[in-house]
Design a protein around this nucleic acid. Structure first.
Lengths: 259, 259
DNA sequence: TTGTCATTTGTCAGTGGCTGTCACTAGCCT
DNA sequence: AGGCTAGTGACAGCCACTGACAAATGACAA
């Protein structure tokens, strides 16, 4: 009902993608769209000269759509929210919504994808001498901060955390989220294999290591969402604690409860 | 086009569920529907006196729908197959299809669920003295056989294997399958916690152990689907080999490739 | 300023998954 | 036989999503 397109401020960090895409799709993220040469001269290493009116307007629309969608999802539930409602809240046509997002799902998972891209970037920056799991561990722990900041630039953090819980509790969203997780695991597995100089299709260890890590991260996330403390500090501690439990969980004999 | 309801023979092992359900849903599988007391006298421990004409007819319809659905999915792809086509192939109304399956997805994942229920049963039967991961390991390896047999009773095994590949390569199905996997992991985690006399919400080890296991199983399954040899023997070997790689994958220093 | 061009948007029409309703038929029970 | 109930078909309708085309609008040059 409220919030028309005029919801200025807070420039989303999203890339200027085609209908479907959002923050960092499967693509390496370093690939700037080569076709849409706005004001920027090609080949120039400069960052962002200035978006131009058209671009800014698009950004605002996308931003408004995202925010309206999330707020509606959170207030009345994902399934009970229709695309028409979202479009109407921003005062654009339903068709326009689909030009910015591949579907309802895509909008709901937007922030997740933002977070994921940060994690992947963090993994990329880990020094090669670290053991695989060590690198992954440090990458998550470290990225919790940057993720928080990046999200703040688009929507209030609190909105994101509530969205996370919504995803976990909405079957359709959870399914989509898990599929996405698998895609990321595949990507990370390739990164690890590369670090170690291995062929990912010949040596199962990269995929297995990543699968183990991913599994633990999912358990961690769920536990975090279920708990009270939704702060960045809490998730970091949980992450570390759970990763430390992998060894014990694989042990022959389980001792008494950890704490 | 072919195959009307008269596709007799091969009685499916499915339970007589409501619109949505299929083989073994979340329920413990030992719970026989208490409401639908057909010919069987209540309280009698006997297995199946005999279905009755009505029941048999239903079974045949469900079976025919399942088979038609899978065959259409495999021949023209999941997305390109409409529910109307499936219904028409069996010569029932579209509405009837939805009375047997919660949706297209449900039909496509039917066999998976059959397999899952066998695995869960196998875990339940593991002696309590085995270490958690040991029990899980033995449960899968052992259940590969019973799963194969159970599926043969409904459709030719080969159909199932092709369906598995289809699931892996169809985004919508993969997503649903992964979500289902998570549900199962939760269930297994509870079983493990029970075996060890632990509170699943107080001690993270059960969930972590199961998540690790599940992750490896998923990688295994994917590898199996990608390969040539789709026999039961192949999957068993792969499973064992991959589970053996968990230790090495978690090690500080990765040695040279395993083989 | 004005004309041209490319992009963005709205409108319309249509497909397909899925659900509620209701009357009808066919097994089942006494 | 006759009543009861479960299974089915025929509609009608909601909603996510897509293709096509025309109108609106920013970008840019004359």
């Amino acid at each position: 009902m409220t919030e028309t397109v005029d919801t200025a401020g807070t420039a989303a960090a999203a890339s200027a993608g085609e209908p479907a895409r959002a923050p960092g799709t499967t693509e390496p993220a370093g690939t700037a769209a080569p076709g849409t040469a706005g004001t920027a001269a090609p080949g120039e290493p400069k960052a962002a000269p200035r978006p131009g009116l058209r671009e800014r307007k698009k950004q605002r629309t996308r931003d408004a759509l995202l925010r309206a969608a999330l707020e509606l999802f959170l207030s009345q539930g994902y399934e009970r929210t229709t695309v028409d409602e979202i479009a109407e809240a921003v005062d654009v046509s339903q068709r326009t919504f689909f030009r910015y997002f591949a579907g309802k799902e895509d909008a709901a998972l937007f922030l997740q994808r933002l977070a994921e891209s940060h994690f992947i970037a963090a993994v990329r920056e880990r020094p090669a001498h670290e053991a695989p799991l060590e690198a992954l561990r440090r990458a998550v722990l470290e990225s919790w901060d940057t993720i928080g900041e990046a999200i703040e630039e688009v929507v209030p953090i609190e909105l994101h955390m509530r969205t996370y819980r919504l995803i976990e509790s909405t079957p359709a969203l959870l399914a989509a989220h898990l599929r996405r997780s698998e895609e990321i695991e595949e990507e990370i597995a390739h990164l690890i294999a590369e670090r170690e100089g291995l062929d990912v299709d010949r040596d199962p260890r990269p995929r297995i290591a990543v699968a183990v890590f991913g599994g633990v991260m999912r358990v961690t996330g769920r536990q975090w969402g279920a708990g009270e403390d939704t702060g960045v500090e809490a998730i970091r501690e949980l992450t570390a604690a759970y990763l430390d439990q992998v060894g014990p969980a694989l042990a022959e004999k389980w001792g008494p409860a950890p704490r």
